[in-house]
Amino acid sequence: MEAQQNTEAEAEEDFEPLTATYERLRHSEDPEELHEFAVRELPDRGDQAAFSRATALLEAVAGNVHTPVEDRIHLAETMPFPNVLVKLSQDQDASVRKAVAANTDCKNWLVGRLTKDSELEVSSTALRNPKTSWKMRLEGAQNEALDADTLDFLGQLGVELESGAPQVLSTMVRRAVALNPSTSEATLKRLAEDTIPAVAKAARSRLNADEQ
């Protein structure tokens, strides 16, 4: 009986215009209804109309604060669709934005935006995302408010991490880490042994200054 009711509800939804369903979900205060849409399996991509409709409705669900936070995090972690991720990147809950920041299906411009997030856990996560541009990584390496662990991560780019990275860009990031006052002594000691003289010199200069 329940399965029949669900089938009838889905059939009824199919007859509802997309804009009407979108607005209903966008303003819904029913967490159970929103949960059902958040976890519903997407139609096959071969059915372009149904697939496009489903992803459009997920945007409405993602942007609704009444959608359970665990469902918003789930969408942020698993969705590859920019329209859905943009909504979630603006979520009032930092844990949702952090999940978006870690999503490797994110567009680089969206990850870049999250590197500027007011919450350090979000911005730090975005800086670790391989989709983050080198420009954003360099700005992060120069940010004195950044935590030591993330600075250590950035200080390994082009060496221990992403060894195939562009040498000029990764060198600029590591040197910026070496010059950052918030970089830990352990990271500085490693950078002082960097094979690139400019990086090693910057790190040694910082270490010497700290000893005086």
Rank of each mutant, 00 (worst) to 15 (best):
residue 202 A to C: 04
residue 200 A to N: 03
residue 192 A to E: 06
residue 114 L to I: 03
residue 80 P to I: 09
residue 173 V to N: 08
residue 96 V to I: 07
residue 78 T to G: 05
residue 162 E to G: 00
residue 181 P to H: 01
residue 195 T to V: 10
residue 201 K to G: 04
residue 187 T to M: 06
residue 176 A to W: 10
residue 193 E to L: 15
residue 151 L to Y: 04
residue 155 G to R: 00
residue 201 K to Q: 13
residue 127 L to F: 02
residue 145 A to C: 07
residue 179 L to Q: 09
residue 178 A to F: 08
residue 187 T to S: 07
residue 187 T to E: 06
residue 178 A to P: 08
residue 86 V to L: 11
residue 182 S to I: 02
residue 159 V to L: 10
residue 151 L to Q: 06
residue 127 L to P: 00
residue 171 T to E: 02
residue 117 D to P: 06
residue 197 P to T: 07
residue 122 V to Y: 04
residue 173 V to Q: 09
residue 208 N to D: 14
residue 94 A to M: 05
residue 108 N to I: 06
residue 183 T to A: 13
residue 180 N to K: 04
residue 86 V to H: 13
residue 201 K to C: 02
residue 196 I to R: 13
residue 97 R to Q: 05
residue 126 A to T: 12
residue 157 L to A: 06
residue 179 L to T: 08
residue 184 S to A: 11
residue 117 D to R: 03
residue 80 P to Y: 13
residue 82 P to V: 03
residue 192 A to M: 11
residue 121 E to V: 03
residue 180 N to E: 03
residue 198 A to I: 14
residue 186 A to G: 11
residue 152 D to W: 10
residue 171 T to D: 00
residue 80 P to R: 14
residue 130 P to S: 15
residue 124 S to C: 03
residue 111 V to K: 11
residue 194 D to G: 02
residue 105 D to N: 15
residue 183 T to M: 02
residue 176 A to D: 00
residue 156 Q to C: 07
residue 184 S to P: 06
residue 152 D to K: 14
residue 114 L to F: 05
residue 138 L to A: 05
residue 101 A to M: 10
residue 195 T to N: 09
residue 117 D to Q: 05
residue 128 R to I: 10
residue 103 N to K: 12
residue 176 A to M: 12
residue 90 Q to D: 14
residue 159 V to N: 11
residue 98 K to Q: 12
residue 191 L to H: 09
residue 108 N to A: 12
residue 202 A to H: 03
residue 130 P to T: 15
residue 192 A to I: 10
residue 188 L to P: 08
residue 180 N to G: 04
residue 125 T to P: 00
residue 163 S to L: 09
residue 184 S to E: 02
residue 180 N to P: 01
residue 180 N to A: 07
residue 181 P to N: 02
residue 84 V to F: 10
residue 169 L to C: 00
residue 192 A to V: 09
residue 142 Q to T: 05
residue 79 M to D: 14
residue 149 D to H: 12
residue 194 D to C: 03
residue 157 L to Q: 09
residue 107 K to H: 09
residue 206 R to F: 03
residue 170 S to D: 11
residue 145 A to H: 07
residue 136 M to T: 02
residue 130 P to Y: 11
residue 200 A to R: 01
residue 164 G to Y: 07
residue 162 E to T: 02
residue 80 P to L: 10
residue 78 T to V: 02
residue 154 L to Y: 04
residue 126 A to D: 05
residue 184 S to W: 01
residue 206 R to G: 15
residue 161 L to M: 10
residue 96 V to F: 05
residue 137 R to L: 01
residue 101 A to K: 07
residue 192 A to C: 12
residue 143 N to D: 15
residue 114 L to G: 02
residue 193 E to V: 08
residue 202 A to L: 00
residue 80 P to G: 06
residue 188 L to H: 13
residue 175 R to V: 00
residue 156 Q to D: 13
residue 168 V to N: 04
residue 191 L to V: 13
